[in-house]
Computed example of a mutant assay.
Amino acid sequence: MTKSELIKMVAAQADVADSTAKAVVEAVVAQVTETLVQGGAVTLAGFGTFSVKPRTARIGRNPQNGQEIQIPASNRAMFKPGKALKDAIQ
């Protein structure tokens, strides 16, 4: 599902205009992003939790020539599905 498909589905289910649904979806995405940038977590009961997990620097290998390379530390966005979502997709 693409973002535009999600917007159309939200608009249909909530019985609102596409422009209103678009504003709501974009606001939710922006707030989740902002919270993660600040290092927080977003928990949606029954759906799951978005969080940030730090990754340490490590040594990897270039697959083309096998040479060792230094991979810098970074932050990674994570999603842990909630119980209701896990149960729904099994």
Rank of each mutant, 00 (worst) to 15 (best):
K3H: 05
S4P: 02
S4K: 09
E5I: 04
L6S: 03
I7E: 05
K8T: 12
A11N: 11
A12E: 13
Q13W: 00
Q13M: 02
Q13H: 07
A14W: 01
A17M: 00
A17G: 08
D18E: 10
T20K: 15
K22T: 10
E26I: 01
A27N: 08
A27Q: 10
V28R: 06
A30S: 15
A30L: 03
V32K: 02
T33C: 02
E34H: 14
T35Q: 07
L36R: 01
Q38A: 13
G40I: 04
A41P: 00
A41I: 00
V42R: 09
V42C: 10
T43E: 13
T43S: 08
T43F: 01
T43N: 08
L44S: 10
L44T: 09
G46N: 07
F47K: 06
T49P: 09
F50S: 08
S51G: 10
P54R: 05
R55P: 00
T56E: 15
T56I: 03
R58I: 00
Q67K: 14
Q67H: 09
E68T: 13
Q70H: 13
I71Q: 02
A73Q: 05
S74D: 09
F79L: 09
F79P: 12
K80L: 07
A84V: 13
L85P: 12
D87Y: 14
Q90I: 07
